[in-house]
Amino acid sequence: MLKPTRLLDLALNVVFAAAIAWVATRFAYSTFPAISMLAGASLLPVAGIEAALGFVIKARIADERIGDGLHDLHPINVARAVALAKASLQVGSLAAGVWLGFLLWVFPQRGTLTAAAADSPGAVVGLLAGSALVAAALWLEYCCRAPDDPTDESATT
């Protein structure tokens, strides 16, 4: 049986990715290209799509419109949505960790390095976009639960 993603696992992803990104930024920042706001925001459309998909699936499950009929949501598509959510949780938490590690090195350097000051807003947007993807994927994962799932194990354990 597939279990809900544990928040501890996601937190460990963030910490691991942040540590590696901090080290990489510390030693190779001068070789990095400029960070634009668009680079940081690249995960936001995916987060929006997943959040919307969660609402659609939740409504179909509530209306008992799961099946192989013409206007029903096929169960395999729900399983695919769960797989998408699980993958997005990994991508989002690792991306948030990378942006966090980058920011932990760049943010204190803003006063002395103009490049660091210019890169900070894009990195903040990246951190927020990674976090938004994690939130949307958690929502999608939650919405894909079968109505008779036991509720004693929540996503927070």
Results as ranks from 00 to 15, higher is better:
3 K>H: 15
3 K>M: 15
3 K>Q: 15
4 P>N: 12
7 L>W: 09
14 V>H: 01
15 V>M: 03
16 F>W: 06
17 A>W: 00
17 A>D: 00
26 R>V: 11
36 S>I: 02
36 S>C: 06
37 M>D: 14
39 A>W: 09
43 L>S: 05
46 V>Y: 11
47 A>Q: 05
47 A>M: 04
51 A>L: 09
54 G>M: 02
55 F>M: 08
55 F>H: 07
58 K>G: 12
60 R>H: 13
62 A>C: 07
65 R>P: 07
68 D>M: 13
68 D>L: 13
71 H>N: 13
72 D>E: 15
77 N>C: 11
78 V>G: 06
78 V>Q: 04
79 A>W: 09
79 A>E: 15
87 A>F: 11
88 S>V: 09
91 V>N: 07
94 L>T: 05
95 A>Y: 08
97 G>I: 00
98 V>S: 09
99 W>R: 03
101 G>P: 01
103 L>T: 01
104 L>E: 01
108 P>A: 00
110 R>L: 10
111 G>N: 07
111 G>Q: 06
112 T>I: 11
112 T>F: 11
112 T>L: 08
112 T>V: 12
115 A>E: 10
116 A>T: 01
118 A>K: 12
118 A>Y: 04
123 A>P: 02
126 G>N: 02
127 L>Y: 03
128 L>N: 04
131 S>R: 03
133 L>R: 05
135 A>R: 05
139 W>G: 06
141 E>D: 14
145 R>D: 13
146 A>L: 11
146 A>V: 07
147 P>F: 07
147 P>Q: 04
147 P>W: 05
148 D>A: 14
148 D>Y: 12
148 D>P: 10
154 S>V: 08
154 S>M: 05
155 A>L: 12
155 A>H: 12
156 T>M: 06
